[in-house]
Amino acid sequence: MHDEVRETIELLLEREQSEGYDPFGFRPKILEQVLPVAHFLYRHWFRVEPHGLENVPDGRLLLIANHSGQLPFDGMMIGTALVLDRRPPRVVRGMVERWVPTLPFVSQFFARAGQVVGTPANARALLEREELLMVFPEGARGISKTFDRRYQLEEFGLGFMRLALETNTPIVPIGVVGAEEQLPSFYNAKGLARLFGMPSVPVSPTLVLPLPVKYRIYFGEPLHFEGDPDDEDRVIRERVDTVTAAIRALLDRGLRERTGIFS
C-alpha cells in the first residue's frame, strides 16, 4: 500500500471508530480496500488538481456539483480529494437509487462504503449527524449527456435546496472540469436504455475505459441560505439558481485556466 494511502487511512480510523459501523452500515475500515484504487485514479490516471479545498468546513455540509462523464468517476474523485488532500480528511456520503438495496453484494458494498439509499429522511438523518453529503442535482440527465453539450448545465432539481433550508446546512458549489471528456458519448440510445431499465446507454468510441483526461475540481465558497423549506417551487428555484450560477462561474474559470484536455 502506498505510504500516502496508509497514512490517510490511519488518520481517518483515528477519527471514526475503527472496528465499528455507523447506523447506516458505513465501515471506515473498508477504505483499506477502496482507497488504493481511488488513489491510483486520482494521482496517476486523472492527475486531479483540487482548488479551494479550504472552502470545505467541518460540520454538516452539502456538496453540490455538476455531473458528467457517463460513469460517476466525478463523484469518486471529489470524494478522494477530500480524503487525500484535505487535512483532516473528510469522508463524503453519497446517495444511491432506491433499487440498489435489491442488488446482492453491490448493496452490501455500497452500504459499507458509506452510500445510503436516497430518501429525504436519510438525507436529513445524515446531515443531523453532521456528515458531508454529496448531491448531483442534474442527476442522470447530467451524467449521460452527449459530447456536443459538454459543460452545459442541465436544469437542477429543487430537493437539495429544500433539504439545506430545512436542516440549516451550508452548500459548497463544486465545478468539475475534465470529466466531460473522459468518455465522449455521441449518442444516447434511449430506446435501448429503456429496454434494459438503465438510465442511459451512451454510444462512445472509448467504451467503458475512461480517457486519462486531467481533472480540475473547484470548490467554491460556502453559500448559506435561509427561508421556508416548504415554499413554492418558484421561490426555491431562485435560490437554486444562485447555486447554479456559482457552479457555472467555477466551470468557466476552470475552462479558462486549462491548457488542454490532457494537461
Binding site: P23, F24, R98, W99, V100, P101, T102, S107, V116, V117, T119, A121, N122, A125
Partner: peptide, 9 residues
C-alpha cells in the same frame, strides 16, 4: 423493504 428509510418513524 429495499426503499425503506434507514430509520422508520
Amino acid at each position: 423493504r429495499p426503499d425503506n428509510p434507514q430509520f422508520l418513524t
